[in-house]
Every structure is written in structure tokens, then in C-alpha cells.
């Protein structure tokens, strides 16, 4: 019963913040600078999601995550599809932790 309560609570505090912007954005029009800020959010979010989190892939050896990341950067720079970038990084980390 308590677990069910926890799940419902977690659901509400996750879903409500996700939902509010849908209604806010219906009503508001923004100045150009706000639009520029909002269009920069995806790139900023990607940056913040990648680093420093990537160093925790193998918590005892942060360098392994970093090397996997560098391999991903190289593969992506060569123009490989995201799926191949992901597989390449997985193989790299796997080989490094053998």
C-alpha cells in the first residue's frame, strides 16, 4: 500500500511539471530573445546530460566513460548513424573493462 502511494506521488510530481508548459505556451507569445533562449535549451540540456554524468559509466574509473565519449564523438564526426555511434561506444567500454 505504501509503495502504491509512493508511485502515485512520484507520478504526480513528475507529470505535473511536464504538463504545465503545454498550457503556458498556449497563452504566451515571447520576445525574440526568449525564443532564442528556448531554442538553445536542447543543446544546453544535452551538454548538461553528457557531462559530468558520462564519467560515472564505470564509477571507479571515470576515464573509461570519457574514452567511450571520445570514440562516440569521433564516430559521429565521421557522419555515422546514431545507432552505430551507440554500438561503437558500447564496444569500446566493453573492451576497456575486459
Amino acid at each position: 500500500m505504501t509503495i502504491l502511494l509512493i508511485i502515485v506521488g512520484m507520478c504526480l510530481v513528475t507529470m505535473i511539471p511536464r504538463l504545465i508548459p503545454a498550457f503556458v505556451m498556449e497563452k504566451l507569445q515571447f520576445r525574440p530573445w526568449v525564443n532564442r533562449w528556448l531554442s538553445a535549451i536542447p543543446y544546453a540540456a544535452l551538454g548538461a546530460l553528457i557531462f559530468p554524468g558520462i564519467m560515472t559509466v564505470v564509477p571507479e574509473q571515470p576515464i573509461i566513460g570519457v574514452i567511450g565519449g571520445v570514440v562516440a564523438i569521433l564516430l559521429a564526426t565521421f557522419g555515422l548513424n546514431v545507432v552505430l555511434v551507440v554500438i561503437g561506444a558500447i564496444i569500446t567500454v566493453f573492451l576497456l573493462t575486459m
Binding site: 543543446y43 544535452l46 551538454g47 546530460l49 553528457i50 554524468g53 558520462i54 559509466v57 564505470v58 566513460g65 567511450g68 565519449g69 562516440a72 564523438i73 564516430l75 559521429a76 564526426t77 557522419g79 555515422l80 548513424n81 546514431v82 555511434v85 551507440v86 561503437g88 561506444a89 558500447i90 564496444i91 569500446t92 567500454v93 566493453f94 573493462t97 575486459m98
Partner: peptide, 24 residues
């Protein structure tokens, strides 16, 4: 365990794979 640990890089690599073409 070794494989699932290696797969922990998957989402980071996906983020990188999404970001790099935009940076280019």
C-alpha cells in the same frame, strides 16, 4: 554484469551522436 555496465554508455553516446551533427 560486464555487458550491462558497458551498455551504461549507450544513452551518453546517443546524446553525443545527436549533438555532434548540430555542432558540425
Amino acid at each position: 554484469q560486464k555487458l550491462s555496465q558497458s551498455m551504461g554508455i549507450a544513452l551518453y553516446a546517443m546524446f553525443i551522436g545527436l549533438l555532434v551533427p548540430s555542432v558540425k
